[in-house]
Nucleic acid binder design. Structure first.
Length: 406
RNA sequence: GGAGAGGUUCCCGAGUGGCCAAAGGGAGCAGACUGUAAAUCUGUUGGCGAAGCCUUCGGAGGUUCGAACCCUCCCCUCUCCA
Protein backbone atom coordinates (compact mmCIF):
# COMPACT_ATOMS: atom_id res chain seq x y z
CA UNK A 1 0.00 0.00 0.00
CA UNK A 2 1.32 3.38 -0.91
CA UNK A 3 2.15 5.68 1.88
CA UNK A 4 -0.33 8.24 0.88
CA UNK A 5 -3.12 5.79 1.00
CA UNK A 6 -5.24 6.73 3.86
CA UNK A 7 -6.61 4.75 6.64
CA UNK A 8 -9.98 5.31 5.26
CA UNK A 9 -9.53 2.38 3.01
CA UNK A 10 -7.99 0.10 5.51
CA UNK A 11 -11.23 -0.52 7.26
CA UNK A 12 -12.99 -1.60 4.18
CA UNK A 13 -10.80 -4.46 3.25
CA UNK A 14 -9.56 -5.55 6.63
CA UNK A 15 -11.31 -6.35 9.84
CA UNK A 16 -11.64 -3.34 12.08
CA UNK A 17 -9.52 -5.13 14.63
CA UNK A 18 -6.49 -4.66 12.46
CA UNK A 19 -5.13 -1.38 13.62
CA UNK A 20 -2.64 0.53 11.57
CA UNK A 21 0.80 0.88 13.07
CA UNK A 22 0.98 3.61 15.60
CA UNK A 23 -2.73 3.67 15.89
CA UNK A 24 -2.77 4.00 19.62
CA UNK A 25 -5.02 6.63 20.96
CA UNK A 26 -2.84 9.21 22.62
CA UNK A 27 -3.84 9.88 26.13
CA UNK A 28 -3.09 13.57 25.98
CA UNK A 29 -5.95 14.24 23.77
CA UNK A 30 -8.40 16.38 25.57
CA UNK A 31 -12.08 16.09 25.01
CA UNK A 32 -12.04 12.52 23.94
CA UNK A 33 -15.45 11.66 22.68
CA UNK A 34 -17.87 10.90 25.39
CA UNK A 35 -20.43 8.72 23.93
CA UNK A 36 -23.09 8.38 26.50
CA UNK A 37 -25.55 6.38 24.64
CA UNK A 38 -25.24 3.83 22.01
CA UNK A 39 -25.93 5.83 18.98
CA UNK A 40 -27.50 3.56 16.52
CA UNK A 41 -27.42 5.15 13.14
CA UNK A 42 -30.65 5.21 11.33
CA UNK A 43 -30.85 2.96 8.43
CA UNK A 44 -33.93 4.17 6.72
CA UNK A 45 -33.44 1.47 4.16
CA UNK A 46 -35.21 1.69 0.94
CA UNK A 47 -36.89 4.95 0.46
CA UNK A 48 -40.51 4.89 -0.47
CA UNK A 49 -41.61 5.54 -3.97
CA UNK A 50 -42.12 9.21 -3.65
CA UNK A 51 -38.74 9.72 -2.19
CA UNK A 52 -36.93 7.28 -4.39
CA UNK A 53 -34.05 8.87 -6.15
CA UNK A 54 -34.94 7.10 -9.30
CA UNK A 55 -38.58 7.88 -9.23
CA UNK A 56 -39.21 10.45 -11.89
CA UNK A 57 -40.10 13.79 -10.41
CA UNK A 58 -43.41 14.11 -12.11
CA UNK A 59 -44.36 17.59 -11.25
CA UNK A 60 -41.25 19.54 -11.87
CA UNK A 61 -41.01 21.22 -15.20
CA UNK A 62 -37.58 20.94 -16.64
CA UNK A 63 -36.99 24.63 -16.73
CA UNK A 64 -39.71 26.57 -15.12
CA UNK A 65 -40.21 30.13 -16.17
CA UNK A 66 -40.15 32.58 -13.35
CA UNK A 67 -43.03 34.48 -11.96
CA UNK A 68 -42.95 36.97 -14.74
CA UNK A 69 -43.27 34.25 -17.23
CA UNK A 70 -39.90 34.78 -18.76
CA UNK A 71 -37.33 32.14 -18.81
CA UNK A 72 -34.85 32.81 -16.11
CA UNK A 73 -31.54 34.04 -17.24
CA UNK A 74 -29.08 31.31 -17.86
CA UNK A 75 -26.49 33.57 -19.28
CA UNK A 76 -28.61 34.13 -22.31
CA UNK A 77 -28.84 30.52 -23.21
CA UNK A 78 -32.53 30.71 -22.66
CA UNK A 79 -32.94 27.52 -20.73
CA UNK A 80 -32.90 25.33 -23.75
CA UNK A 81 -30.47 22.95 -22.20
CA UNK A 82 -30.95 22.08 -18.61
CA UNK A 83 -27.86 23.99 -17.88
CA UNK A 84 -26.94 24.89 -14.39
CA UNK A 85 -27.58 28.54 -13.99
CA UNK A 86 -24.27 29.65 -12.71
CA UNK A 87 -21.88 32.45 -13.14
CA UNK A 88 -20.29 31.09 -16.20
CA UNK A 89 -23.48 29.48 -17.33
CA UNK A 90 -21.90 26.81 -19.40
CA UNK A 91 -24.73 25.51 -21.49
CA UNK A 92 -24.74 21.79 -21.09
CA UNK A 93 -25.67 19.99 -24.24
CA UNK A 94 -27.94 17.32 -22.93
CA UNK A 95 -31.09 17.55 -20.96
CA UNK A 96 -30.54 14.84 -18.43
CA UNK A 97 -33.27 15.62 -15.97
CA UNK A 98 -35.48 12.67 -15.55
CA UNK A 99 -34.63 10.89 -18.75
CA UNK A 100 -30.88 10.54 -18.84
CA UNK A 101 -28.54 8.12 -17.20
CA UNK A 102 -28.27 8.48 -13.46
CA UNK A 103 -25.27 9.15 -11.31
CA UNK A 104 -24.28 7.47 -8.10
CA UNK A 105 -23.73 9.74 -5.13
CA UNK A 106 -21.58 8.30 -2.41
CA UNK A 107 -21.53 10.37 0.74
CA UNK A 108 -20.72 9.82 4.38
CA UNK A 109 -18.94 11.43 7.30
CA UNK A 110 -15.18 11.89 7.12
CA UNK A 111 -13.34 8.70 7.55
CA UNK A 112 -16.12 6.17 7.02
CA UNK A 113 -14.36 4.70 4.05
CA UNK A 114 -15.84 6.49 1.07
CA UNK A 115 -12.66 6.71 -0.97
CA UNK A 116 -11.84 3.04 -0.98
CA UNK A 117 -15.39 1.95 -1.52
CA UNK A 118 -15.76 4.36 -4.40
CA UNK A 119 -12.80 2.83 -6.14
CA UNK A 120 -14.28 -0.62 -5.77
CA UNK A 121 -17.62 0.54 -6.99
CA UNK A 122 -16.20 2.42 -9.93
CA UNK A 123 -14.25 -0.62 -11.03
CA UNK A 124 -17.30 -2.79 -10.81
CA UNK A 125 -19.31 -0.32 -12.81
CA UNK A 126 -16.40 0.28 -15.17
CA UNK A 127 -16.72 3.95 -14.74
CA UNK A 128 -14.90 6.97 -13.34
CA UNK A 129 -15.00 8.92 -10.12
CA UNK A 130 -15.94 12.54 -9.63
CA UNK A 131 -14.82 14.20 -6.46
CA UNK A 132 -17.40 16.02 -4.35
CA UNK A 133 -15.13 17.18 -1.59
CA UNK A 134 -14.70 20.90 -1.35
CA UNK A 135 -11.10 20.71 -0.23
CA UNK A 136 -9.77 18.02 -2.48
CA UNK A 137 -10.20 20.30 -5.45
CA UNK A 138 -7.13 22.22 -4.30
CA UNK A 139 -3.67 21.36 -5.51
CA UNK A 140 -0.87 20.71 -3.03
CA UNK A 141 -3.31 19.82 -0.30
CA UNK A 142 -3.09 16.07 -0.24
CA UNK A 143 -2.42 14.67 3.18
CA UNK A 144 -4.76 16.91 5.14
CA UNK A 145 -7.63 16.44 2.75
CA UNK A 146 -7.17 12.68 2.65
CA UNK A 147 -7.05 12.90 -1.09
CA UNK A 148 -7.02 9.58 -2.95
CA UNK A 149 -3.46 8.50 -3.46
CA UNK A 150 -1.54 7.49 -6.56
CA UNK A 151 -2.59 3.90 -6.22
CA UNK A 152 -6.27 4.67 -6.18
CA UNK A 153 -5.91 7.12 -8.97
CA UNK A 154 -4.14 4.57 -11.06
CA UNK A 155 -6.98 2.15 -10.61
CA UNK A 156 -9.78 4.52 -11.48
CA UNK A 157 -9.76 7.87 -13.21
CA UNK A 158 -10.65 10.63 -10.77
CA UNK A 159 -12.09 13.96 -11.82
CA UNK A 160 -12.27 17.29 -9.99
CA UNK A 161 -9.18 16.61 -7.95
CA UNK A 162 -6.42 19.24 -8.03
CA UNK A 163 -8.30 21.62 -10.23
CA UNK A 164 -7.41 24.91 -8.58
CA UNK A 165 -4.58 26.47 -6.65
CA UNK A 166 -5.25 27.30 -3.01
CA UNK A 167 -5.41 31.00 -3.75
CA UNK A 168 -7.99 30.70 -6.49
CA UNK A 169 -11.60 31.35 -5.73
CA UNK A 170 -13.74 28.29 -5.75
CA UNK A 171 -17.33 27.73 -4.78
CA UNK A 172 -20.35 25.56 -5.32
CA UNK A 173 -21.22 27.22 -8.61
CA UNK A 174 -17.78 26.68 -9.98
CA UNK A 175 -17.98 23.11 -8.83
CA UNK A 176 -21.15 22.61 -10.77
CA UNK A 177 -19.64 24.22 -13.83
CA UNK A 178 -16.75 21.83 -13.73
CA UNK A 179 -18.53 18.68 -12.68
CA UNK A 180 -21.59 18.81 -14.91
CA UNK A 181 -19.66 18.54 -18.19
CA UNK A 182 -17.72 15.59 -16.84
CA UNK A 183 -20.93 13.82 -15.97
CA UNK A 184 -22.35 14.53 -19.36
CA UNK A 185 -19.30 13.30 -21.07
CA UNK A 186 -19.32 10.09 -19.08
CA UNK A 187 -22.98 9.65 -19.78
CA UNK A 188 -22.15 10.18 -23.41
CA UNK A 189 -20.03 7.09 -23.32
CA UNK A 190 -22.64 5.17 -21.43
CA UNK A 191 -20.95 5.35 -18.08
CA UNK A 192 -22.58 6.02 -14.76
CA UNK A 193 -20.33 8.37 -12.80
CA UNK A 194 -19.61 7.71 -9.17
CA UNK A 195 -19.59 11.01 -7.29
CA UNK A 196 -17.82 10.69 -3.94
CA UNK A 197 -17.33 13.20 -1.21
CA UNK A 198 -18.58 14.68 1.96
CA UNK A 199 -19.61 18.13 0.85
CA UNK A 200 -23.36 18.10 0.99
CA UNK A 201 -23.85 21.42 -0.70
CA UNK A 202 -21.83 20.39 -3.71
CA UNK A 203 -23.86 17.25 -4.11
CA UNK A 204 -27.07 19.15 -3.77
CA UNK A 205 -26.03 21.68 -6.34
CA UNK A 206 -24.92 18.94 -8.67
CA UNK A 207 -28.30 17.26 -8.64
CA UNK A 208 -30.54 20.27 -8.24
CA UNK A 209 -28.65 23.21 -9.64
CA UNK A 210 -27.85 26.45 -7.95
CA UNK A 211 -29.82 29.60 -7.53
CA UNK A 212 -28.97 31.93 -10.38
CA UNK A 213 -28.04 34.79 -8.11
CA UNK A 214 -24.92 36.73 -8.82
CA UNK A 215 -21.49 35.54 -7.88
CA UNK A 216 -19.63 37.30 -5.13
CA UNK A 217 -18.48 40.79 -5.96
CA UNK A 218 -15.17 41.77 -4.37
CA UNK A 219 -15.84 45.51 -4.48
CA UNK A 220 -19.23 45.25 -2.85
CA UNK A 221 -17.90 42.77 -0.35
CA UNK A 222 -15.15 45.13 0.63
CA UNK A 223 -17.61 47.95 1.06
CA UNK A 224 -19.77 45.74 3.26
CA UNK A 225 -16.84 44.75 5.39
CA UNK A 226 -15.96 48.38 5.81
CA UNK A 227 -19.49 49.21 6.90
CA UNK A 228 -19.46 46.30 9.26
CA UNK A 229 -16.38 47.72 10.94
CA UNK A 230 -18.00 51.11 11.28
CA UNK A 231 -21.57 50.27 12.17
CA UNK A 232 -21.41 46.69 13.28
CA UNK A 233 -23.02 43.56 12.01
CA UNK A 234 -26.30 44.33 13.71
CA UNK A 235 -26.74 47.42 11.55
CA UNK A 236 -26.15 45.40 8.43
CA UNK A 237 -28.63 42.82 9.57
CA UNK A 238 -31.13 45.58 10.19
CA UNK A 239 -30.57 46.82 6.68
CA UNK A 240 -31.13 43.33 5.35
CA UNK A 241 -34.34 43.10 7.31
CA UNK A 242 -35.53 46.30 5.68
CA UNK A 243 -34.47 45.48 2.19
CA UNK A 244 -35.14 41.74 2.08
CA UNK A 245 -37.41 40.83 4.98
CA UNK A 246 -37.61 37.10 4.31
CA UNK A 247 -33.84 36.78 4.26
CA UNK A 248 -33.50 39.06 7.24
CA UNK A 249 -35.82 36.88 9.22
CA UNK A 250 -34.33 33.65 8.07
CA UNK A 251 -30.71 34.60 8.57
CA UNK A 252 -29.59 34.93 12.15
CA UNK A 253 -28.11 38.35 13.02
CA UNK A 254 -24.89 36.65 14.07
CA UNK A 255 -24.50 34.72 10.87
CA UNK A 256 -22.06 37.14 9.37
CA UNK A 257 -21.33 35.11 6.30
CA UNK A 258 -24.95 34.88 5.25
CA UNK A 259 -25.89 38.41 6.20
CA UNK A 260 -23.09 39.74 4.04
CA UNK A 261 -23.94 37.46 1.18
CA UNK A 262 -27.60 38.44 1.16
CA UNK A 263 -26.77 42.13 1.18
CA UNK A 264 -24.17 41.63 -1.47
CA UNK A 265 -26.73 40.07 -3.77
CA UNK A 266 -29.20 42.85 -3.18
CA UNK A 267 -26.74 45.64 -3.72
CA UNK A 268 -25.31 44.06 -6.78
CA UNK A 269 -28.53 43.26 -8.57
CA UNK A 270 -31.24 45.18 -6.80
CA UNK A 271 -32.99 41.87 -6.44
CA UNK A 272 -33.39 40.10 -3.15
CA UNK A 273 -31.67 36.87 -2.41
CA UNK A 274 -34.89 35.45 -1.07
CA UNK A 275 -36.68 36.28 -4.30
CA UNK A 276 -34.08 34.55 -6.31
CA UNK A 277 -34.10 31.54 -4.04
CA UNK A 278 -37.85 31.36 -4.09
CA UNK A 279 -37.79 30.95 -7.80
CA UNK A 280 -35.08 28.38 -7.69
CA UNK A 281 -36.07 26.22 -4.74
CA UNK A 282 -33.87 23.38 -5.94
CA UNK A 283 -36.91 22.39 -7.89
CA UNK A 284 -35.32 21.02 -11.01
CA UNK A 285 -33.45 17.78 -11.29
CA UNK A 286 -30.22 18.18 -13.17
CA UNK A 287 -29.12 14.61 -12.75
CA UNK A 288 -31.05 11.81 -11.25
CA UNK A 289 -29.02 10.11 -8.61
CA UNK A 290 -28.79 6.96 -6.60
CA UNK A 291 -27.92 8.48 -3.27
CA UNK A 292 -25.96 6.39 -0.83
CA UNK A 293 -24.83 7.53 2.59
CA UNK A 294 -22.22 5.40 4.33
CA UNK A 295 -22.43 5.23 8.10
CA UNK A 296 -20.81 3.51 11.01
CA UNK A 297 -21.55 3.82 14.68
CA UNK A 298 -20.63 7.13 16.22
CA UNK A 299 -17.96 5.46 18.31
CA UNK A 300 -16.51 3.84 15.26
CA UNK A 301 -16.41 7.03 13.24
CA UNK A 302 -14.77 8.91 16.08
CA UNK A 303 -12.19 6.22 16.55
CA UNK A 304 -11.37 6.24 12.88
CA UNK A 305 -10.96 9.99 12.95
CA UNK A 306 -8.57 9.61 15.83
CA UNK A 307 -6.45 7.15 13.94
CA UNK A 308 -6.67 9.01 10.71
CA UNK A 309 -5.41 12.28 12.11
CA UNK A 310 -2.50 10.49 13.73
CA UNK A 311 -1.75 8.90 10.40
CA UNK A 312 -1.82 12.27 8.66
CA UNK A 313 0.75 13.60 11.07
CA UNK A 314 2.86 10.53 10.54
CA UNK A 315 2.65 11.06 6.80
CA UNK A 316 3.99 14.57 7.05
CA UNK A 317 0.98 16.80 7.36
CA UNK A 318 3.01 19.45 9.15
CA UNK A 319 5.51 19.49 6.34
CA UNK A 320 2.74 19.80 3.81
CA UNK A 321 1.34 22.87 5.53
CA UNK A 322 4.79 24.39 5.90
CA UNK A 323 5.34 23.80 2.21
CA UNK A 324 2.13 25.56 1.30
CA UNK A 325 3.10 28.54 3.39
CA UNK A 326 6.52 28.60 1.75
CA UNK A 327 4.87 28.57 -1.65
CA UNK A 328 3.22 31.77 -0.62
CA UNK A 329 -0.21 30.43 0.20
CA UNK A 330 -0.96 32.53 3.23
CA UNK A 331 -2.72 31.32 6.35
CA UNK A 332 -5.78 33.41 5.62
CA UNK A 333 -6.69 31.81 2.35
CA UNK A 334 -9.93 29.93 2.51
CA UNK A 335 -8.50 26.43 2.17
CA UNK A 336 -5.73 27.28 4.60
CA UNK A 337 -8.42 27.97 7.18
CA UNK A 338 -9.99 24.60 6.73
CA UNK A 339 -9.94 21.71 9.12
CA UNK A 340 -6.45 20.68 9.99
CA UNK A 341 -4.63 23.25 7.91
CA UNK A 342 -5.77 26.00 10.22
CA UNK A 343 -4.58 24.22 13.35
CA UNK A 344 -1.27 23.14 11.87
CA UNK A 345 -0.60 26.65 10.62
CA UNK A 346 -1.25 27.96 14.11
CA UNK A 347 1.20 25.45 15.46
CA UNK A 348 3.80 26.50 12.91
CA UNK A 349 3.33 30.07 14.05
CA UNK A 350 4.21 28.87 17.52
CA UNK A 351 0.76 29.46 18.92
CA UNK A 352 0.18 25.90 20.04
CA UNK A 353 2.14 22.75 20.59
CA UNK A 354 1.82 20.00 18.04
CA UNK A 355 -0.03 17.88 20.55
CA UNK A 356 -2.50 20.65 21.12
CA UNK A 357 -2.96 21.16 17.39
CA UNK A 358 -3.55 17.47 16.83
CA UNK A 359 -6.02 17.42 19.66
CA UNK A 360 -7.95 20.30 18.17
CA UNK A 361 -7.96 18.81 14.72
CA UNK A 362 -9.46 15.64 16.07
CA UNK A 363 -12.13 17.54 17.93
CA UNK A 364 -13.01 19.72 14.95
CA UNK A 365 -13.08 16.69 12.72
CA UNK A 366 -15.52 14.98 15.03
CA UNK A 367 -17.74 18.01 14.89
CA UNK A 368 -17.48 18.12 11.17
CA UNK A 369 -18.53 14.50 10.92
CA UNK A 370 -21.54 15.33 13.05
CA UNK A 371 -22.49 18.23 10.82
CA UNK A 372 -22.23 16.00 7.80
CA UNK A 373 -24.61 13.53 9.36
CA UNK A 374 -27.01 16.32 10.14
CA UNK A 375 -26.88 17.57 6.58
CA UNK A 376 -27.49 14.24 4.95
CA UNK A 377 -30.11 13.19 7.46
CA UNK A 378 -32.12 16.10 6.20
CA UNK A 379 -32.17 14.72 2.68
CA UNK A 380 -34.52 11.75 2.71
CA UNK A 381 -33.37 10.64 -0.70
CA UNK A 382 -30.14 9.44 0.76
CA UNK A 383 -30.28 5.84 1.82
CA UNK A 384 -28.11 5.05 4.77
CA UNK A 385 -26.00 1.93 4.78
CA UNK A 386 -23.56 0.47 7.21
CA UNK A 387 -20.25 1.14 5.53
CA UNK A 388 -19.02 -2.29 6.44
CA UNK A 389 -21.87 -3.92 4.61
CA UNK A 390 -20.57 -3.46 1.12
CA UNK A 391 -22.60 -6.26 -0.34
CA UNK A 392 -25.90 -4.68 0.57
CA UNK A 393 -24.80 -1.41 -0.88
CA UNK A 394 -23.66 -2.97 -4.10
CA UNK A 395 -26.84 -4.96 -4.36
CA UNK A 396 -28.88 -1.86 -3.84
CA UNK A 397 -27.01 0.10 -6.44
CA UNK A 398 -27.27 -2.72 -8.95
CA UNK A 399 -30.96 -2.93 -8.28
CA UNK A 400 -31.46 0.77 -8.87
CA UNK A 401 -29.39 0.76 -12.01
CA UNK A 402 -31.15 -2.30 -13.37
CA UNK A 403 -34.47 -0.68 -12.71
CA UNK A 404 -33.26 2.22 -14.67
CA UNK A 405 -32.17 0.21 -17.65
CA UNK A 406 -35.40 -1.68 -17.69
C1' G B 1 2.97 16.45 63.82
C1' G B 2 1.78 22.07 63.17
C1' A B 3 -0.24 26.30 60.06
C1' G B 4 -3.06 27.70 55.99
C1' A B 5 -6.07 27.05 51.42
C1' G B 6 -9.69 24.22 49.26
C1' G B 7 -13.45 20.20 47.91
C1' U B 8 -19.81 23.10 43.46
C1' U B 9 -23.84 20.13 38.42
C1' C B 10 -19.41 15.84 32.50
C1' C B 11 -14.72 19.31 33.11
C1' C B 12 -12.91 24.21 34.61
C1' G B 13 -14.96 27.83 37.57
C1' A B 14 -18.47 31.84 40.01
C1' G B 15 -21.67 31.77 43.98
C1' U B 16 -20.99 32.90 50.86
C1' G B 17 -28.54 32.55 54.30
C1' G B 18 -34.17 33.05 50.55
C1' C B 19 -34.13 36.20 43.82
C1' C B 20 -29.89 28.92 43.06
C1' A B 21 -31.01 23.38 39.53
C1' A B 22 -26.94 27.12 40.79
C1' A B 23 -23.24 32.86 36.53
C1' G B 24 -19.47 32.18 32.82
C1' G B 25 -16.39 29.15 29.90
C1' G B 26 -15.14 24.29 27.93
C1' A B 27 -16.62 19.56 26.25
C1' G B 28 -21.04 16.89 24.67
C1' C B 29 -25.76 16.56 22.15
C1' A B 30 -29.32 18.47 18.61
C1' G B 31 -30.40 21.66 14.57
C1' A B 32 -29.91 25.24 10.32
C1' C B 33 -27.54 25.62 5.71
C1' U B 34 -28.64 27.83 -2.36
C1' G B 35 -21.73 31.20 -4.99
C1' U B 36 -16.37 30.98 1.84
C1' A B 37 -19.80 24.87 3.10
C1' A B 38 -13.56 21.00 6.18
C1' A B 39 -17.09 27.29 6.18
C1' U B 40 -20.81 30.04 8.90
C1' C B 41 -24.55 30.11 12.49
C1' U B 42 -28.37 28.52 16.26
C1' G B 43 -30.42 25.82 20.33
C1' U B 44 -29.65 22.78 24.46
C1' U B 45 -27.16 20.42 28.60
C1' G B 46 -29.71 16.98 36.85
C1' G B 47 -34.49 13.78 36.55
C1' C B 48 -39.75 13.61 35.41
C1' G B 49 -43.36 16.80 33.85
C1' A B 50 -48.31 21.55 31.83
C1' A B 51 -47.96 24.38 36.10
C1' G B 52 -45.09 21.74 39.32
C1' C B 53 -42.58 18.04 41.80
C1' C B 54 -38.13 15.15 42.95
C1' U B 55 -32.68 14.52 43.59
C1' U B 56 -27.94 17.75 43.62
C1' C B 57 -23.01 21.78 45.68
C1' G B 58 -17.03 15.87 49.73
C1' G B 59 -19.71 12.85 54.15
C1' A B 60 -22.60 12.86 58.72
C1' G B 61 -25.02 15.76 62.14
C1' G B 62 -26.73 20.69 63.86
C1' U B 63 -28.58 26.07 63.83
C1' U B 64 -32.67 28.47 61.03
C1' C B 65 -39.31 29.53 58.83
C1' G B 66 -35.41 28.62 55.04
C1' A B 67 -28.47 26.42 53.90
C1' A B 68 -24.16 25.19 48.32
C1' C B 69 -23.57 29.31 51.66
C1' C B 70 -23.49 29.51 59.27
C1' C B 71 -21.70 25.73 63.36
C1' U B 72 -19.54 20.69 64.87
C1' C B 73 -17.13 16.26 63.71
C1' C B 74 -15.15 13.18 59.87
C1' C B 75 -12.91 12.09 54.86
C1' C B 76 -9.96 13.84 50.83
C1' U B 77 -6.63 17.41 47.96
C1' C B 78 -2.96 21.26 47.75
C1' U B 79 0.77 24.81 49.89
C1' C B 80 4.03 26.07 53.77
C1' C B 81 6.58 24.89 58.53
C1' A B 82 8.64 20.84 61.34
Amino acid sequence: MGQTILLEQAGLCTPPALQPPGGLVPSFCCGAPRTRRNHSPAFPGVADDTASPLAPSKTVPRCAPDSQGRAHSCGGSGCKPAAPCSSTAVPHPSVPGEAGLPIVLLAGPTGVGKTAFAVRLARLLETEIINADSMQVYRFMDIGTAKPGAEERSLVLHHLLDVVNPDEPFDAARYLDLAAPVIESLHGSGKIPVVVGGTGLYMKVLTRGICPAVPGDPAIREQLLCEEREKGLAALHAELLAVDPPSGQRIHPNDRQRVLRALEVFRHTGETLSGSQDRHRFARTLFRAVKIFLVRSREDVYQRIERRVDAMIAQGFVKEVAGLLEMGYGPNLRPMLSLGYKQIAAHLRGETSLDEAVCRIKRETRRYAKRQMTWFRADPEFQWFDAADEESILARIREELAKHKG
